[in-house]
C-alpha cells in the first residue's frame, strides 16, 4: 500500500466519494493506513472524484524546517503545514474539497451517529462538544456516519456516511481515552491551529458499512457547559430549521431542493437542545432517548 501511495495509485472510497491519493511522506502513510485499515482499496484504474497529493515541500526550507503541501489536481489551495502535521492537513484538506464540490447533497456541519436504524444528527458550532459527544457514542457502539458532515441525499432524505478520523482537541483527548480506551487513537499533534489534536480512528464496522445510508430520527443540538446540570429540551421544528439553515455548508447553494430537503428533515425528526457538563450523563440521556422514542 505504501508503494501505491508513493505512486499516486491508491484509490479508496470515503462515503459516496472516491479519492486518488499519493504521498511521499512516510509518517503520513503509516498513520493513514492505521486509521483506514479496514477500507477496501479500489483498483488503480477507478475514476475518482478527487486527486490528492500530500507531499514534502520542495525548496531550501526542506533542510531546516520541512513542510508539507496539500495538492488537489495539482493546485495548492492552502499554505504548507509542518511536515509532521501531514495527517491533520490531509483530513482537513479533503473535508474542504468535499465542502466545496459536493453540492448535489445538502451538507450540514454536523456529526451523525446511528443505532437501531435511527440516525442522530449532532449539529453544532466548534467548541460545543460535538466531536467529543460523537466519539463517546461511537465508543458505546453507535455507528459513526461522520464527525463533521451531515450529508443529506435529496432523493430520499437519508444521511450518507462519511466515516473519517475524528479530531479530538485538548481536554477532550484524555477524557475520551479514559471513557473509551478500546477505540483506536492516532498520534498527538501538538500546537495545531486548534491546539493539541489526537484523532479517534473510525471503527472497522463503521468503515465497512460506509455505503449504507441511515434514516434521520433525532436532531440534537449539543452544548457543553462546564459543571452544567444535564438538560434535554424538545425544540420546535421551526427553531431547528432556522438553526440548520445557518449551520449548513451549502444550504443556499442547494436552492429550492435544499429548502425541500431541510423541511423534510425537520418534519421527520424530533429536535432537542442538549446542555451538558458531564460526558457520561449526556451519553446516557441520548441512549434513553433512543430507547423511549426511537423507532
Amino acid at each position: 500500500m505504501s508503494r501505491r501511495l508513493r505512486e499516486q495509485r491508491l484509490c479508496f472510497a470515503t462515503g459516496p466519494f472516491k479519492v486518488r491519493l499519493g504521498s511521499d511522506v512516510d509518517s503520513f502513510s503509516a498513520t493513514w493506513q492505521r486509521s483506514y485499515a479496514s477500507l477496501d482499496v479500489l483498483p488503480a484504474e477507478e475514476i475518482c472524484h478527487f486527486r490528492i497529493a500530500v507531499e514534502r515541500q520542495r525548496g531550501a526550507r526542506r533542510w531546516y524546517r520541512p513542510q508539507v503541501v496539500f495538492r488537489i489536481e495539482g493546485l495548492t489551495p492552502f499554505d504548507p503545514y509542518p511536515l509532521d502535521h501531514a495527517f491533520p492537513m490531509f483530513e482537513w484538506g479533503l473535508n474542504w474539497c468535499i465542502a466545496m464540490s459536493a453540492h448535489d447533497y445538502l451538507m450540514l456541519h454536523s456529526a451523525v451517529v446511528e443505532r437501531d436504524g435511527c440516525a442522530v444528527a449532532l449539529p453544532a458550532q466548534p467548541g460545543s462538544g460535538k466531536s467529543t459527544l460523537c466519539a463517546a457514542l461511537v465508543g458505546r457502539g453507535w455507528r459513526l456516519l461522520s464527525d463533521e458532515f451531515g450529508i443529506l441525499r435529496h432523493a430520499d432524505g437519508s444521511f450518507l456516511p462519511l466515516p473519517r478520523a475524528a479530531p479530538l482537541k485538548n481536554a477532550s483527548i484524555p477524557l475520551l481515552q479514559n471513557f473509551a480506551p478500546h477505540l483506536g487513537f492516532g498520534p498527538r499533534y501538538a500546537k495545531t491551529r486548534k491546539g493539541d489534536v489526537v484523532h479517534m480512528f473510525p471503527p472497522g464496522d463503521s468503515l465497512q458499512r460506509q455505503a449504507d445510508p441511515a434514516r434521520p430520527r433525532f436532531i440534537v443540538f449539543p452544548r457543553y457547559e462546564p459543571d452544567a446540570v444535564l438538560q434535554l429540551h424538545a425544540q420546535p421544528p421551526e427553531v431547528a430549521m432556522t438553526r440548520l439553515v445557518n449551520n449548513s455548508f451549502n444550504y443556499r447553494v442547494s436552492g429550492a431542493q435544499g429548502f425541500r430537503s431541510l423541511c423534510g428533515l425537520v418534519r421527520e425528526c424530533e429536535s432537542y437542545q442538549l446542555i451538558n457538563g458531564d460526558l457520561s450523563e449526556a451519553v446516557a440521556a441520548l441512549e434513553s432517548l433512543l430507547q423511549e422514542r426511537g423507532r
Binding site: 459516496p16 466519494f17 464540490s101 453540492h103 448535489d104 436552492g255
Partner: peptide, 8 residues
Amino acid sequence: DVLSGHAR
C-alpha cells in the same frame, strides 16, 4: 458528481 456539483 463533480461536474454537476460545480454547475450547481
